[in-house]
């Protein structure tokens, strides 16, 4: 079947199998390998991308289901080469180690800040609670998101 969707602002059309998972469409078909996968059961959250502005677990969405919709991945976070404040925050506050969960964390963090520009520590922990990080122990991720909240550049948080 043919599927057409917007990915990071660009319209893409590809011939796919109905069963193709969105995460594989992004990684294997479009070579957008910033989105990872870490489980098969939508428990780990390394595959989080945006579907129509909401974070979703792309291992549990069919590529076909994204047809006609808009997908945003970590590759679409920086605008004109300028890092999003959450990306900068993760660098500033050591919010990553191996980097594997990072893209999913960044996408969830950006969505949180768009809805709630000044989240508390508890709200941040809640927001990322469907995503596992094996390296950081989460405290630095929380600080990274707070950094982004404090240092938000208004023009890129829209």
């Amino acid at each position: 079947m043919q599927v057409t969707m917007i990915v990071n602002g660009d319209e893409v059309t590809r011939e796919i199998e109905g069963r193709l998972l969105l995460v594989h469409f992004l990684r294997d078909v479009l070579s957008l390998t910033g989105t990872h996968w870490g489980c098969d059961t939508s428990n780990c959250g390394t595959c989080v991308v945006w579907l129509d502005g909401e974070p979703v677990k792309s291992c549990t969405v069919l590529a076909a289901m994204a047809g006609g919709h808009e997908v945003r991945t970590v590759e679409g976070l920086a605008v004109d080469g300028k890092l999003d404040p959450v990306q900068e925050g993760f660098i500033q506050c050591h919010g990553l180690q191996c980097g594997f969960c990072t893209p999913g964390m960044l996408m969830t963090a950006r969505a949180l800040l768009d809805r709630n520009p000044d989240p508390s520590e508890g709200e941040i922990r809640e927001a990322i609670s469907g995503q596992i990080c094996r390296c950081t122990g989460y405290a630095t991720i929380v600080r990274s998101v707070r950094w982004a909240a404090v240092n938000a550049a208004p023009e890129v948080t829209s």
Partner: peptide, 11 residues
Amino acid sequence: DPRFVRGRGRY
């Protein structure tokens, strides 16, 4: 970090 936050790690 700059490569990882851009999704440019290579696993």
